[in-house]
Design a protein around this nucleic acid. Structure first.
Lengths: 250, 250
DNA sequence: CATTTTTCATTTGTCTGACATTTAAAAGTC
DNA sequence: GACTTTTAAATGTCAGACAAATGAAAAATG
Protein backbone atom coordinates (compact mmCIF):
# COMPACT_ATOMS: atom_id res chain seq x y z
CA UNK A 1 0.00 0.00 0.00
CA UNK A 2 3.05 2.25 0.14
CA UNK A 3 3.07 3.72 -3.32
CA UNK A 4 -0.62 3.42 -3.92
CA UNK A 5 -2.49 6.70 -3.75
CA UNK A 6 -5.73 4.97 -4.74
CA UNK A 7 -7.61 8.13 -5.52
CA UNK A 8 -11.10 8.46 -6.92
CA UNK A 9 -13.00 11.26 -8.64
CA UNK A 10 -16.11 12.27 -6.69
CA UNK A 11 -17.36 14.29 -9.64
CA UNK A 12 -17.34 11.39 -12.03
CA UNK A 13 -20.74 10.09 -13.08
CA UNK A 14 -19.61 6.60 -12.10
CA UNK A 15 -20.73 5.11 -8.79
CA UNK A 16 -18.32 5.84 -5.99
CA UNK A 17 -18.41 2.21 -4.90
CA UNK A 18 -17.47 1.11 -8.42
CA UNK A 19 -14.57 3.56 -8.51
CA UNK A 20 -13.31 2.44 -5.13
CA UNK A 21 -13.61 -1.20 -6.12
CA UNK A 22 -11.64 -0.49 -9.28
CA UNK A 23 -8.93 1.36 -7.38
CA UNK A 24 -8.45 -1.53 -4.98
CA UNK A 25 -8.71 -4.07 -7.81
CA UNK A 26 -5.95 -2.25 -9.66
CA UNK A 27 -3.82 -2.24 -6.53
CA UNK A 28 -4.25 -5.99 -6.14
CA UNK A 29 -3.63 -6.82 -9.79
CA UNK A 30 -0.74 -4.40 -9.95
CA UNK A 31 0.99 -6.07 -7.05
CA UNK A 32 0.74 -3.18 -4.59
CA UNK A 33 -1.38 -5.37 -2.39
CA UNK A 34 -0.08 -8.89 -1.99
CA UNK A 35 -1.82 -12.12 -1.08
CA UNK A 36 -3.09 -12.33 2.50
CA UNK A 37 -2.30 -8.67 3.11
CA UNK A 38 -4.88 -6.94 5.21
CA UNK A 39 -6.69 -3.95 3.76
CA UNK A 40 -7.36 -0.94 5.99
CA UNK A 41 -10.54 -1.24 8.02
CA UNK A 42 -13.78 -0.05 6.49
CA UNK A 43 -13.68 3.11 8.58
CA UNK A 44 -10.14 3.89 7.51
CA UNK A 45 -11.02 3.30 3.86
CA UNK A 46 -14.04 5.54 4.26
CA UNK A 47 -11.78 8.29 5.61
CA UNK A 48 -9.19 7.72 2.90
CA UNK A 49 -11.69 7.99 0.04
CA UNK A 50 -13.79 10.59 1.85
CA UNK A 51 -16.98 8.54 1.57
CA UNK A 52 -19.27 6.82 4.02
CA UNK A 53 -18.82 3.33 5.33
CA UNK A 54 -21.79 1.83 3.44
CA UNK A 55 -20.22 3.03 0.20
CA UNK A 56 -16.93 1.39 1.12
CA UNK A 57 -18.79 -1.77 2.01
CA UNK A 58 -20.51 -1.87 -1.37
CA UNK A 59 -17.09 -1.61 -3.00
CA UNK A 60 -15.73 -4.44 -0.85
CA UNK A 61 -18.70 -6.66 -1.68
CA UNK A 62 -17.99 -6.13 -5.36
CA UNK A 63 -14.46 -7.39 -4.81
CA UNK A 64 -15.67 -10.28 -2.68
CA UNK A 65 -18.00 -11.33 -5.50
CA UNK A 66 -14.91 -11.72 -7.69
CA UNK A 67 -13.08 -13.64 -4.96
CA UNK A 68 -10.47 -10.90 -4.88
CA UNK A 69 -10.84 -10.44 -1.13
CA UNK A 70 -12.24 -12.33 1.83
CA UNK A 71 -13.48 -10.79 5.06
CA UNK A 72 -13.26 -11.82 8.68
CA UNK A 73 -15.08 -10.42 11.63
CA UNK A 74 -13.81 -9.58 15.05
CA UNK A 75 -10.65 -8.08 16.47
CA UNK A 76 -7.73 -8.37 14.05
CA UNK A 77 -10.34 -9.17 11.42
CA UNK A 78 -10.89 -7.20 8.25
CA UNK A 79 -10.62 -7.65 4.50
CA UNK A 80 -7.70 -9.65 3.16
CA UNK A 81 -6.39 -10.10 -0.35
CA UNK A 82 -7.52 -13.57 -1.33
CA UNK A 83 -5.36 -16.17 -3.04
CA UNK A 84 -7.59 -17.22 -5.90
CA UNK A 85 -8.22 -20.97 -5.66
CA UNK A 86 -9.13 -23.30 -8.48
CA UNK A 87 -12.65 -23.96 -7.20
CA UNK A 88 -13.29 -20.23 -7.04
CA UNK A 89 -11.90 -19.69 -10.52
CA UNK A 90 -13.99 -22.63 -11.79
CA UNK A 91 -17.12 -21.16 -10.31
CA UNK A 92 -16.50 -17.77 -11.91
CA UNK A 93 -15.73 -19.30 -15.25
CA UNK A 94 -18.78 -21.56 -15.26
CA UNK A 95 -21.08 -18.69 -14.35
CA UNK A 96 -19.76 -16.59 -17.21
CA UNK A 97 -19.73 -19.41 -19.74
CA UNK A 98 -23.24 -20.57 -18.88
CA UNK A 99 -24.64 -17.08 -19.21
CA UNK A 100 -22.90 -16.46 -22.53
CA UNK A 101 -24.58 -19.57 -23.89
CA UNK A 102 -27.99 -19.24 -22.28
CA UNK A 103 -28.37 -15.63 -23.30
CA UNK A 104 -27.85 -16.59 -26.91
CA UNK A 105 -24.79 -14.44 -27.35
CA UNK A 106 -23.18 -17.70 -28.50
CA UNK A 107 -24.78 -20.38 -30.63
CA UNK A 108 -24.67 -24.00 -29.61
CA UNK A 109 -22.68 -24.79 -32.74
CA UNK A 110 -19.99 -22.28 -31.85
CA UNK A 111 -19.71 -23.53 -28.27
CA UNK A 112 -19.65 -27.12 -29.44
CA UNK A 113 -16.92 -26.42 -31.96
CA UNK A 114 -14.81 -24.61 -29.37
CA UNK A 115 -15.29 -27.39 -26.87
CA UNK A 116 -14.25 -30.17 -29.22
CA UNK A 117 -11.37 -28.16 -30.62
CA UNK A 118 -10.02 -27.83 -27.09
CA UNK A 119 -10.78 -31.43 -26.32
CA UNK A 120 -8.79 -32.55 -29.31
CA UNK A 121 -5.92 -30.45 -28.00
CA UNK A 122 -6.23 -32.24 -24.67
CA UNK A 123 -6.40 -35.63 -26.33
CA UNK A 124 -2.98 -35.14 -27.89
CA UNK A 125 -1.49 -34.47 -24.46
CA UNK A 126 -3.58 -37.13 -22.80
CA UNK A 127 -2.30 -39.75 -25.22
CA UNK A 128 1.19 -39.08 -23.89
CA UNK A 129 0.48 -38.57 -20.22
CA UNK A 130 -2.70 -40.33 -19.12
CA UNK A 131 -2.25 -42.66 -16.16
CA UNK A 132 -3.81 -46.08 -15.78
CA UNK A 133 -6.37 -44.44 -13.53
CA UNK A 134 -7.65 -42.16 -16.26
CA UNK A 135 -7.95 -45.07 -18.67
CA UNK A 136 -9.75 -47.17 -16.06
CA UNK A 137 -12.27 -44.38 -15.45
CA UNK A 138 -12.92 -44.00 -19.15
CA UNK A 139 -13.45 -47.77 -19.59
CA UNK A 140 -15.72 -47.88 -16.56
CA UNK A 141 -17.88 -45.06 -17.89
CA UNK A 142 -18.13 -46.73 -21.30
CA UNK A 143 -19.27 -49.89 -19.52
CA UNK A 144 -21.86 -47.93 -17.60
CA UNK A 145 -23.12 -46.32 -20.80
CA UNK A 146 -23.88 -49.76 -22.20
CA UNK A 147 -26.21 -50.75 -19.38
CA UNK A 148 -29.78 -51.16 -20.58
CA UNK A 149 -32.40 -49.17 -18.73
CA UNK A 150 -30.03 -46.29 -18.06
CA UNK A 151 -31.90 -42.98 -17.93
CA UNK A 152 -30.94 -40.18 -20.28
CA UNK A 153 -29.73 -38.14 -17.36
CA UNK A 154 -27.51 -40.91 -16.05
CA UNK A 155 -26.17 -41.48 -19.55
CA UNK A 156 -25.42 -37.80 -19.84
CA UNK A 157 -23.70 -37.71 -16.45
CA UNK A 158 -21.56 -40.66 -17.43
CA UNK A 159 -20.70 -38.91 -20.66
CA UNK A 160 -19.47 -35.91 -18.70
CA UNK A 161 -17.41 -38.16 -16.42
CA UNK A 162 -15.85 -39.82 -19.45
CA UNK A 163 -14.83 -36.52 -21.00
CA UNK A 164 -13.60 -35.23 -17.68
CA UNK A 165 -11.26 -38.22 -17.36
CA UNK A 166 -10.07 -37.68 -20.91
CA UNK A 167 -9.28 -34.03 -20.26
CA UNK A 168 -7.74 -34.61 -16.85
CA UNK A 169 -5.46 -37.16 -18.49
CA UNK A 170 -3.62 -34.26 -20.09
CA UNK A 171 -2.42 -33.32 -16.62
CA UNK A 172 -2.86 -29.61 -17.23
CA UNK A 173 -5.17 -27.91 -14.71
CA UNK A 174 -5.58 -24.83 -16.92
CA UNK A 175 -6.95 -26.93 -19.75
CA UNK A 176 -9.19 -28.82 -17.33
CA UNK A 177 -10.42 -25.48 -16.06
CA UNK A 178 -11.19 -24.16 -19.53
CA UNK A 179 -12.96 -27.34 -20.57
CA UNK A 180 -14.97 -27.51 -17.37
CA UNK A 181 -16.50 -24.18 -18.28
CA UNK A 182 -17.36 -25.29 -21.80
CA UNK A 183 -18.82 -28.62 -20.71
CA UNK A 184 -20.82 -27.20 -17.80
CA UNK A 185 -22.24 -24.46 -19.95
CA UNK A 186 -23.52 -26.98 -22.49
CA UNK A 187 -24.95 -29.25 -19.82
CA UNK A 188 -28.47 -27.76 -19.66
CA UNK A 189 -28.88 -28.31 -23.39
CA UNK A 190 -27.33 -31.76 -23.32
CA UNK A 191 -29.77 -32.79 -20.63
CA UNK A 192 -32.66 -32.05 -22.97
CA UNK A 193 -31.47 -34.62 -25.46
CA UNK A 194 -33.19 -37.98 -25.73
CA UNK A 195 -30.54 -40.60 -26.39
CA UNK A 196 -32.00 -43.34 -28.57
CA UNK A 197 -30.57 -46.84 -28.43
CA UNK A 198 -28.94 -46.28 -31.79
CA UNK A 199 -27.32 -42.97 -30.86
CA UNK A 200 -26.09 -44.46 -27.57
CA UNK A 201 -24.53 -47.27 -29.53
CA UNK A 202 -22.79 -44.81 -31.82
CA UNK A 203 -21.52 -42.76 -28.91
CA UNK A 204 -20.25 -45.79 -27.04
CA UNK A 205 -18.44 -46.90 -30.18
CA UNK A 206 -16.74 -43.53 -30.52
CA UNK A 207 -15.86 -43.43 -26.82
CA UNK A 208 -14.23 -46.81 -27.26
CA UNK A 209 -12.30 -45.58 -30.29
CA UNK A 210 -11.09 -42.57 -28.33
CA UNK A 211 -10.04 -44.66 -25.35
CA UNK A 212 -8.24 -47.17 -27.53
CA UNK A 213 -6.35 -44.36 -29.23
CA UNK A 214 -5.43 -42.76 -25.91
CA UNK A 215 -4.26 -46.09 -24.55
CA UNK A 216 -2.14 -46.65 -27.66
CA UNK A 217 -0.67 -43.16 -27.34
CA UNK A 218 -2.13 -42.28 -30.72
CA UNK A 219 -3.17 -38.64 -30.47
CA UNK A 220 -4.21 -38.16 -34.12
CA UNK A 221 -6.54 -41.17 -33.94
CA UNK A 222 -8.12 -39.77 -30.79
CA UNK A 223 -8.63 -36.45 -32.56
CA UNK A 224 -10.33 -38.13 -35.48
CA UNK A 225 -12.70 -40.00 -33.18
CA UNK A 226 -13.45 -36.78 -31.28
CA UNK A 227 -14.34 -35.06 -34.52
CA UNK A 228 -16.79 -37.84 -35.30
CA UNK A 229 -18.26 -37.45 -31.82
CA UNK A 230 -18.59 -33.71 -32.40
CA UNK A 231 -20.67 -34.41 -35.52
CA UNK A 232 -22.84 -36.84 -33.62
CA UNK A 233 -23.43 -34.36 -30.79
CA UNK A 234 -24.25 -31.56 -33.18
CA UNK A 235 -26.77 -33.71 -35.06
CA UNK A 236 -28.48 -34.77 -31.84
CA UNK A 237 -28.63 -31.20 -30.55
CA UNK A 238 -30.04 -29.88 -33.80
CA UNK A 239 -32.83 -32.44 -33.58
CA UNK A 240 -33.71 -31.08 -30.16
CA UNK A 241 -33.69 -27.51 -31.42
CA UNK A 242 -35.92 -28.40 -34.34
CA UNK A 243 -38.33 -30.10 -31.94
CA UNK A 244 -38.35 -27.06 -29.66
CA UNK A 245 -38.96 -24.75 -32.59
CA UNK A 246 -41.96 -26.80 -33.75
CA UNK A 247 -43.62 -27.22 -30.35
CA UNK A 248 -43.06 -23.60 -29.39
CA UNK A 249 -40.54 -22.08 -27.05
CA UNK A 250 -39.31 -23.90 -23.93
CA UNK B 1 -40.28 -14.22 -10.89
CA UNK B 2 -43.53 -16.22 -10.74
CA UNK B 3 -42.31 -19.55 -9.42
CA UNK B 4 -39.32 -18.19 -7.57
CA UNK B 5 -39.71 -18.15 -3.82
CA UNK B 6 -36.12 -16.87 -3.44
CA UNK B 7 -35.91 -17.52 0.25
CA UNK B 8 -32.91 -17.12 2.50
CA UNK B 9 -31.97 -18.44 5.93
CA UNK B 10 -31.44 -15.61 8.44
CA UNK B 11 -29.90 -18.05 10.93
CA UNK B 12 -27.18 -19.20 8.58
CA UNK B 13 -23.68 -18.05 9.41
CA UNK B 14 -23.32 -16.77 5.84
CA UNK B 15 -23.70 -13.08 5.13
CA UNK B 16 -27.24 -12.12 4.30
CA UNK B 17 -26.06 -10.14 1.29
CA UNK B 18 -24.21 -13.19 -0.02
CA UNK B 19 -27.29 -15.36 0.39
CA UNK B 20 -29.51 -12.84 -1.34
CA UNK B 21 -27.02 -12.47 -4.18
CA UNK B 22 -26.94 -16.24 -4.57
CA UNK B 23 -30.73 -16.49 -4.59
CA UNK B 24 -31.01 -13.90 -7.35
CA UNK B 25 -28.07 -15.41 -9.22
CA UNK B 26 -29.79 -18.79 -9.16
CA UNK B 27 -32.98 -17.19 -10.43
CA UNK B 28 -31.11 -15.61 -13.33
CA UNK B 29 -29.12 -18.68 -14.25
CA UNK B 30 -32.18 -20.90 -13.81
CA UNK B 31 -34.16 -18.82 -16.26
CA UNK B 32 -36.73 -17.49 -13.80
CA UNK B 33 -35.44 -14.02 -14.53
CA UNK B 34 -34.88 -13.30 -18.19
CA UNK B 35 -32.66 -10.80 -19.94
CA UNK B 36 -33.68 -7.16 -19.53
CA UNK B 37 -36.30 -8.07 -16.96
CA UNK B 38 -36.52 -5.58 -14.15
CA UNK B 39 -35.91 -6.78 -10.62
CA UNK B 40 -38.12 -5.49 -7.82
CA UNK B 41 -36.94 -2.20 -6.36
CA UNK B 42 -34.46 -2.24 -3.52
CA UNK B 43 -37.19 -1.46 -1.03
CA UNK B 44 -39.38 -4.27 -2.32
CA UNK B 45 -36.48 -6.71 -2.22
CA UNK B 46 -35.73 -5.59 1.32
CA UNK B 47 -39.31 -6.35 2.30
CA UNK B 48 -39.29 -9.66 0.47
CA UNK B 49 -36.14 -10.92 2.19
CA UNK B 50 -36.96 -9.16 5.44
CA UNK B 51 -33.68 -7.26 5.53
CA UNK B 52 -32.66 -3.63 5.28
CA UNK B 53 -32.00 -1.76 2.08
CA UNK B 54 -28.22 -1.50 2.55
CA UNK B 55 -28.07 -5.28 2.80
CA UNK B 56 -30.01 -5.62 -0.43
CA UNK B 57 -27.74 -3.07 -2.04
CA UNK B 58 -24.64 -5.03 -1.07
CA UNK B 59 -26.19 -8.09 -2.70
CA UNK B 60 -26.95 -6.15 -5.86
CA UNK B 61 -23.41 -4.78 -6.01
CA UNK B 62 -22.11 -8.34 -5.86
CA UNK B 63 -24.22 -9.21 -8.88
CA UNK B 64 -23.20 -6.03 -10.67
CA UNK B 65 -19.55 -6.98 -10.17
CA UNK B 66 -20.24 -10.15 -12.13
CA UNK B 67 -22.09 -8.22 -14.83
CA UNK B 68 -25.24 -10.18 -14.00
CA UNK B 69 -27.27 -7.02 -13.55
CA UNK B 70 -27.06 -3.35 -14.46
CA UNK B 71 -28.74 -0.52 -12.62
CA UNK B 72 -30.38 2.65 -13.78
CA UNK B 73 -31.40 5.62 -11.74
CA UNK B 74 -34.53 7.67 -11.86
CA UNK B 75 -38.19 6.91 -12.40
CA UNK B 76 -38.73 3.57 -14.12
CA UNK B 77 -35.14 2.84 -13.19
CA UNK B 78 -33.96 -0.11 -11.15
CA UNK B 79 -31.87 -3.23 -11.54
CA UNK B 80 -32.17 -5.17 -14.78
CA UNK B 81 -30.90 -8.59 -15.75
CA UNK B 82 -27.95 -7.88 -17.99
CA UNK B 83 -27.26 -9.59 -21.29
CA UNK B 84 -23.65 -10.62 -20.81
CA UNK B 85 -21.58 -9.08 -23.59
CA UNK B 86 -18.28 -10.33 -24.92
CA UNK B 87 -16.24 -7.39 -23.58
CA UNK B 88 -17.68 -8.00 -20.12
CA UNK B 89 -17.00 -11.72 -20.31
CA UNK B 90 -13.47 -10.97 -21.57
CA UNK B 91 -12.83 -8.66 -18.67
CA UNK B 92 -13.99 -11.22 -16.12
CA UNK B 93 -11.94 -13.96 -17.71
CA UNK B 94 -8.79 -11.89 -17.91
CA UNK B 95 -9.04 -10.82 -14.29
CA UNK B 96 -9.38 -14.41 -13.16
CA UNK B 97 -6.66 -15.75 -15.44
CA UNK B 98 -4.19 -13.02 -14.52
CA UNK B 99 -4.67 -13.62 -10.82
CA UNK B 100 -4.33 -17.38 -11.15
CA UNK B 101 -0.97 -16.85 -12.80
CA UNK B 102 0.34 -13.99 -10.71
CA UNK B 103 -0.55 -15.67 -7.45
CA UNK B 104 1.47 -18.70 -8.47
CA UNK B 105 -1.44 -21.09 -8.37
CA UNK B 106 -0.37 -21.90 -11.92
CA UNK B 107 3.16 -22.24 -13.23
CA UNK B 108 4.22 -20.42 -16.35
CA UNK B 109 4.95 -23.76 -18.01
CA UNK B 110 1.41 -24.99 -17.42
CA UNK B 111 -0.17 -21.80 -18.70
CA UNK B 112 2.14 -21.79 -21.72
CA UNK B 113 1.31 -25.39 -22.56
CA UNK B 114 -2.42 -24.73 -22.28
CA UNK B 115 -2.15 -21.64 -24.41
CA UNK B 116 -0.27 -23.29 -27.23
CA UNK B 117 -2.43 -26.40 -27.10
CA UNK B 118 -5.46 -24.18 -27.65
CA UNK B 119 -3.66 -22.15 -30.28
CA UNK B 120 -2.89 -25.28 -32.23
CA UNK B 121 -6.57 -26.12 -32.08
CA UNK B 122 -7.35 -22.68 -33.48
CA UNK B 123 -4.72 -23.03 -36.19
CA UNK B 124 -6.47 -26.08 -37.62
CA UNK B 125 -9.70 -24.10 -37.95
CA UNK B 126 -7.90 -20.97 -39.07
CA UNK B 127 -6.23 -22.84 -41.92
CA UNK B 128 -9.69 -23.59 -43.30
CA UNK B 129 -11.45 -20.31 -42.56
CA UNK B 130 -9.05 -17.39 -42.32
CA UNK B 131 -9.89 -14.47 -44.56
CA UNK B 132 -7.40 -12.46 -46.59
CA UNK B 133 -7.64 -9.84 -43.85
CA UNK B 134 -6.32 -12.17 -41.21
CA UNK B 135 -3.44 -13.21 -43.41
CA UNK B 136 -2.64 -9.59 -44.24
CA UNK B 137 -2.54 -8.70 -40.55
CA UNK B 138 -0.23 -11.59 -39.80
CA UNK B 139 2.14 -10.65 -42.62
CA UNK B 140 2.11 -7.00 -41.57
CA UNK B 141 3.02 -7.89 -37.99
CA UNK B 142 5.83 -10.16 -39.16
CA UNK B 143 7.13 -7.25 -41.23
CA UNK B 144 6.95 -4.96 -38.22
CA UNK B 145 8.80 -7.51 -36.10
CA UNK B 146 11.73 -7.36 -38.52
CA UNK B 147 12.26 -3.63 -38.16
CA UNK B 148 15.59 -2.83 -36.52
CA UNK B 149 15.42 -0.60 -33.45
CA UNK B 150 12.09 -1.98 -32.37
CA UNK B 151 11.76 -1.93 -28.58
CA UNK B 152 11.08 -5.14 -26.70
CA UNK B 153 7.68 -3.84 -25.72
CA UNK B 154 6.72 -3.00 -29.27
CA UNK B 155 7.98 -6.39 -30.42
CA UNK B 156 5.89 -8.04 -27.72
CA UNK B 157 2.79 -6.04 -28.67
CA UNK B 158 3.24 -7.02 -32.30
CA UNK B 159 3.60 -10.62 -31.23
CA UNK B 160 0.27 -10.42 -29.44
CA UNK B 161 -1.36 -8.85 -32.49
CA UNK B 162 0.00 -11.64 -34.66
CA UNK B 163 -1.40 -14.36 -32.43
CA UNK B 164 -4.68 -12.53 -32.12
CA UNK B 165 -5.07 -12.50 -35.90
CA UNK B 166 -4.20 -16.18 -36.02
CA UNK B 167 -6.80 -17.05 -33.40
CA UNK B 168 -9.47 -14.76 -34.82
CA UNK B 169 -8.96 -16.47 -38.16
CA UNK B 170 -10.70 -19.50 -36.70
CA UNK B 171 -13.88 -17.42 -36.67
CA UNK B 172 -14.98 -18.80 -33.32
CA UNK B 173 -15.54 -16.09 -30.69
CA UNK B 174 -15.50 -18.60 -27.83
CA UNK B 175 -12.03 -19.75 -28.77
CA UNK B 176 -10.91 -16.13 -29.18
CA UNK B 177 -12.32 -15.43 -25.74
CA UNK B 178 -10.51 -18.35 -24.13
CA UNK B 179 -7.23 -17.48 -25.79
CA UNK B 180 -7.50 -13.81 -24.92
CA UNK B 181 -7.48 -14.79 -21.26
CA UNK B 182 -4.45 -17.01 -21.64
CA UNK B 183 -2.47 -14.47 -23.66
CA UNK B 184 -3.35 -11.49 -21.47
CA UNK B 185 -2.47 -13.37 -18.31
CA UNK B 186 0.98 -14.20 -19.68
CA UNK B 187 1.57 -10.65 -20.87
CA UNK B 188 3.19 -9.27 -17.70
CA UNK B 189 5.79 -12.01 -17.83
CA UNK B 190 6.32 -11.73 -21.56
CA UNK B 191 6.99 -8.05 -21.16
CA UNK B 192 9.93 -8.85 -18.91
CA UNK B 193 11.67 -10.78 -21.63
CA UNK B 194 14.58 -9.25 -23.49
CA UNK B 195 14.35 -10.31 -27.12
CA UNK B 196 17.83 -10.67 -28.56
CA UNK B 197 18.42 -10.24 -32.29
CA UNK B 198 18.87 -13.97 -32.62
CA UNK B 199 15.68 -14.88 -30.75
CA UNK B 200 13.73 -12.31 -32.77
CA UNK B 201 15.03 -13.87 -35.92
CA UNK B 202 13.94 -17.30 -34.75
CA UNK B 203 10.50 -16.05 -33.80
CA UNK B 204 10.00 -14.22 -37.08
CA UNK B 205 11.02 -17.39 -38.93
CA UNK B 206 8.44 -19.41 -37.01
CA UNK B 207 5.76 -16.78 -37.51
CA UNK B 208 6.43 -16.95 -41.22
CA UNK B 209 6.18 -20.73 -41.18
CA UNK B 210 2.86 -20.51 -39.37
CA UNK B 211 1.48 -17.93 -41.77
CA UNK B 212 2.61 -19.89 -44.79
CA UNK B 213 0.92 -22.99 -43.44
CA UNK B 214 -2.29 -21.11 -42.69
CA UNK B 215 -2.27 -19.57 -46.15
CA UNK B 216 -1.77 -23.00 -47.70
CA UNK B 217 -4.60 -24.40 -45.60
CA UNK B 218 -2.15 -26.80 -43.99
CA UNK B 219 -3.29 -27.14 -40.37
CA UNK B 220 -0.79 -29.82 -39.32
CA UNK B 221 2.14 -27.74 -40.56
CA UNK B 222 0.85 -24.75 -38.61
CA UNK B 223 0.62 -26.93 -35.50
CA UNK B 224 4.18 -28.10 -35.91
CA UNK B 225 5.44 -24.54 -36.22
CA UNK B 226 3.42 -23.52 -33.17
CA UNK B 227 4.99 -26.30 -31.16
CA UNK B 228 8.42 -25.01 -32.12
CA UNK B 229 7.34 -21.51 -31.08
CA UNK B 230 6.14 -22.89 -27.76
CA UNK B 231 9.60 -24.33 -27.12
CA UNK B 232 11.21 -21.02 -28.01
CA UNK B 233 8.89 -19.09 -25.68
CA UNK B 234 9.46 -21.49 -22.83
CA UNK B 235 13.22 -21.26 -23.19
CA UNK B 236 13.16 -17.47 -23.24
CA UNK B 237 10.88 -17.32 -20.20
CA UNK B 238 13.00 -19.74 -18.24
CA UNK B 239 15.99 -17.54 -18.85
CA UNK B 240 14.10 -14.63 -17.32
CA UNK B 241 13.09 -16.72 -14.30
CA UNK B 242 16.66 -17.85 -13.77
CA UNK B 243 17.78 -14.22 -13.92
CA UNK B 244 15.12 -13.17 -11.44
CA UNK B 245 16.05 -16.00 -9.11
CA UNK B 246 19.74 -14.98 -9.15
CA UNK B 247 19.25 -11.25 -8.67
CA UNK B 248 16.62 -11.73 -6.01
CA UNK B 249 12.90 -11.37 -6.23
CA UNK B 250 11.27 -8.75 -8.46
C1' DC C 1 3.34 -19.05 39.24
C1' DA C 2 0.33 -21.16 35.91
C1' DT C 3 -4.21 -21.50 34.29
C1' DT C 4 -8.62 -20.28 33.57
C1' DT C 5 -12.07 -16.86 33.25
C1' DT C 6 -13.58 -12.33 32.39
C1' DT C 7 -13.46 -8.09 30.37
C1' DC C 8 -12.68 -5.18 26.63
C1' DA C 9 -11.51 -3.01 22.36
C1' DT C 10 -11.70 -3.71 17.45
C1' DT C 11 -13.91 -4.91 13.30
C1' DT C 12 -17.41 -6.55 10.32
C1' DG C 13 -22.57 -7.24 9.81
C1' DT C 14 -26.96 -5.06 9.98
C1' DC C 15 -30.59 -1.62 10.75
C1' DT C 16 -33.00 2.93 10.67
C1' DG C 17 -33.86 7.10 8.71
C1' DA C 18 -32.74 10.74 6.03
C1' DC C 19 -31.36 13.52 2.00
C1' DA C 20 -29.39 14.09 -2.86
C1' DT C 21 -29.70 13.06 -7.64
C1' DT C 22 -31.50 11.32 -11.68
C1' DT C 23 -35.16 10.30 -14.69
C1' DA C 24 -39.49 9.63 -16.99
C1' DA C 25 -44.07 10.65 -16.95
C1' DA C 26 -47.85 13.67 -15.72
C1' DA C 27 -49.59 18.23 -15.39
C1' DG C 28 -49.72 22.71 -16.70
C1' DT C 29 -49.00 26.69 -19.99
C1' DC C 30 -48.68 29.20 -24.21
C1' DG D 1 -50.14 20.75 -30.43
C1' DA D 2 -45.59 21.86 -28.62
C1' DC D 3 -43.11 23.29 -24.85
C1' DT D 4 -42.19 23.92 -19.92
C1' DT D 5 -42.83 22.77 -15.17
C1' DT D 6 -43.94 19.76 -11.61
C1' DT D 7 -43.99 15.48 -9.44
C1' DA D 8 -43.18 10.85 -8.11
C1' DA D 9 -40.20 6.95 -8.06
C1' DA D 10 -35.97 4.94 -7.98
C1' DT D 11 -31.04 4.59 -7.08
C1' DG D 12 -26.89 6.88 -4.80
C1' DT D 13 -25.02 8.52 -0.55
C1' DC D 14 -24.63 9.75 4.16
C1' DA D 15 -24.77 9.64 9.39
C1' DG D 16 -25.20 7.25 13.43
C1' DA D 17 -26.29 3.37 15.96
C1' DC D 18 -26.36 -1.39 17.70
C1' DA D 19 -25.34 -6.52 17.24
C1' DA D 20 -22.13 -10.15 16.91
C1' DA D 21 -17.78 -12.18 16.50
C1' DT D 22 -13.08 -12.47 17.90
C1' DG D 23 -8.60 -12.08 19.70
C1' DA D 24 -5.92 -10.07 23.29
C1' DA D 25 -5.25 -8.13 27.59
C1' DA D 26 -6.65 -8.07 32.34
C1' DA D 27 -8.38 -10.23 36.30
C1' DA D 28 -9.57 -14.00 39.07
C1' DT D 29 -8.53 -18.56 40.72
C1' DG D 30 -6.20 -22.77 41.95
Amino acid sequence: MKNAPMQIDPNSNVDLSAQIAQAIRDAIMGGELIVDERLPSESELADHFAVSRPTVREALKRLAAQSLIRTQRGASGGAFVNRLSYPEAYSQHITTATLLLSMNAVSFETACEARYAMERACAALSARRRTADHLATMRAEIFRQQQPGLTDEAFCASDVAFHRALVDGAGNPVLSYQLAGAVEAMQPLMNMITFSARSREAIVKLHTDITDAIEAGDGPAASTALTALECETLTLAQTVFAERARTGKR
